[in-house]
């Protein structure tokens, strides 16, 4: 099944800050969503030219 299958079957690794605990996987998902949100705000949308008369 390869490396990916092996990776998916590993035990989750958790990190702690005092009372706060989160798995690396969940942290990566949250960071991915934040990056996606930031990119959606700043990346120019194709065909959206300022000054163009749009309805």
């Amino acid at each position: 099944m390869g490396i990916f299958h092996h990776f998916m079957n590993l035990k989750a690794v958790y990190i702690h800050w005092g009372w706060f605990q989160i798995s690396i996987t969940n942290l990566l998902v949250i960071l991915f969503m934040l990056v996606l949100f930031g990119l959606a705000l700043v990346l120019p949308f194709p065909g959206n030219k300022k000054g163009k008369d749009q309805k």
Binding site: F37, L39, G47, N48, Q54
Partner: peptide
């Protein structure tokens, strides 16, 4: 078949 100009942003696609 048309949308306001402000909809031309990636954030409106989600």
């Amino acid at each position: 078949d048309t949308q306001p100009a402000y909809v031309a942003s990636w954030i409106y696609l989600f």
